[in-house]
Design a protein around this nucleic acid. Structure first.
Lengths: 195, 195, 195, 195
DNA sequence: CATGAATGAGAATTCATTCAT
DNA sequence: CATGAATGAATTCTCATTCAT
């Protein structure tokens, strides 16, 4: 999730927003600060974004785009469901763990109000959950996975585990690597607690 | 998690805050609105809370208190680890599912900024995770649960699943009962995906 | 000007007001703070003073009373005008210099607005100036002082010098004694700058 | 001290502040009123001044600047010390007497708290006193003035007389001209009371 | 006389957004 | 496309004062 600036103003604005919002939170971040860091005038922001909230939406979309894109790539390969799931888990944690500032946005700031989450969740998160769900379905069809769990539910549960690990990592100020949790997550998700 | 007002002003203010914040979000909720709903003067709020944010903290503490209290109760009983976990899961979902307004606060509004979450997470959430973790430890000691998973990790994973179900329920506008997810969660947590 | 508390609540309130107002200024001093220092309830203040500003008026009156009383005493004695003036000057500087907190009130806080000064100046300050003026008149009648200066003007000029010394002392944070300026003031007032 | 507006927004704000603060006092003057009179939006004030108090500081600086500038001009001329002093006195009273609103600010509102005066007095007032003091020194060196008075003290004493006249004029609601006091002040300062 | 919980008017300041240049 | 000065609505919090006990 490393930010590679293509130098375009829009990208510079988004990149600046990530840093500023990560530092002081969405509400404490002024449009003026973002503009300053991006090296543009305050008014310029409004040539690229309808309003301040739109910046946050764009940040979300950019982040989700990366997740979905990477997820899709893996799904196309001919792997077993378990293997695919393992890769999705590793990918998820790796992507989030690559950029702490971006992770703060994704795990915390993007969820700052019901109204806001309402708009987010359906479209893109749904797509991401769909990808996971399809892997679960595949596993059930091939007989790898138990069939008594609703794939939609399973996808959410898996996402819940990943999301908790990510949030926990963001909030802990230790210098661990988020991906190091991947094996445990795979174990837990595939095998559960029971012996 | 039904709110039982003891009629004290502080309680009335907190109850009013839950309703108002659930409706319009923390930032869009003015202290004046909370005061009005509580039937007190604006200034009275400040006799009970240092500032607006303190109201949110109190809301969190009140909610967590209920969780921990209920969790503790179950732990004291002499049940198997699986059974205890089942009860914690049911309890968690039942408590959250009892009051949608409170759930909006807990699942969304309380997480509105890193700075804020930083202050929350450690103390009380840690205690709640500790309770779950102890059950995992018990299960490992009695041989019910596999021993290769770190109990601290397992507790977070379980919490992640519960939290995702709760958030999903809050965001879905259908009229389902959150507790109806309990059996699936129990199954997933105990048995994992694998056959 | 040392404050000797007769222990009455009113006196305790005034004494507390001096300390608090000297420390943080009239506007930054809350009635609650004064009450707390005086060891009474907030409401009690209003049994003794109509409002916050009345406290300031009382402080002024108490201070002026001391000045006038002392001034009057000296005037009654049978001294030469020069000698009387010398004593008034010494007295003024000694009284002000005795209590820095009270001096802050007198030299600074009591003058915080035109409206406020308007009410002060006429009554009591006029009386104090009158005392000085009478000494000037006496000096002019006995031939000690030049006759071409209006005694009312002279009184104000003398007061101006004393007042400036007092304010200068309050603002300087050095540990000098205000009375040490008395000889110079006497010299200046009596002899002027010319050889 | 007539205010000549260069029409710049900052100047318009300062000029409006003088009128409003003179009318109702610093504390009773709202930023909104100043803005309204200046014909700008409330927020515009904060583009030019960090906060309300900064306006008062600017007012002080603008006023002192005029005093010092005028004082300096006279000092450069080759006059006797007595003559220079006479001119400083006349100038001071003329400048103050030119604009009653500004005088209210200078003589009363600018002194509303110790904290505030602390910040004012040292820098600029010190410079003004220095100018007077230099004239005293000149007089002592040329033999015009007595040598037994400390020039620093003398400067303060002279300032005290001028300041008292100014304040007295502001507080008196009669329609006298402040400069009319100049001859008496000169007489008093140069010759003292004694025959 | 005394209390102190409650009141609610009041004001400074911020900042997203606009628009003339 | 870009600028950045100007706007003005909007809101938290303070605190003098009251009054039921």
């Amino acid at each position: 999730m490393a930010r590679v600036s293509d130098g375009s103003k829009k990208t510079r604005i988004l990149d600046s927003a990530v840093v500023e919002i990560a530092q002081r939170g969405y509400n404490q971040t002024t449009v003026a600060r973002i503009a300053k860091r991006a090296g543009v005038a305050d008014g310029t922001i409004y040539l690229y974004f309808k309003n301040k909230e739109e910046i946050l939406f764009s940040l979300f979309e950019r982040a989700m785009g990366r997740f979905i894109e990477t997820g899709r790539t893996r799904l196309n390969e001919s792997l077993s469901a378990s293997e695919k799931l393992k890769q999705i888990i590793e990918l998820h944690l790796t992507l989030v763990g690559e950029d702490r500032d971006q992770a703060i946005i994704t795990q915390v700031e993007l969820r700052h109000s019901l109204h806001f989450m309402d708009q987010l969740s359906r479209a893109q998160v749904g797509e991401y959950l769909g990808i996971i769900g399809q892997v679960v379905v595949q596993g059930q069809e091939t007989g790898e996975f138990r069939k008594d769990l609703d794939p939609v539910f399973a996808a959410k549960a898996i996402f819940g585990v990943l999301d908790e690990m990510a949030t926990d990592w963001v909030l802990s100020h230790r210098n661990t690597r988020l991906e190091s949790k991947a094996p445990s997550v795979v174990e837990f998700v595939l095998g559960g607690l029971k012996k």
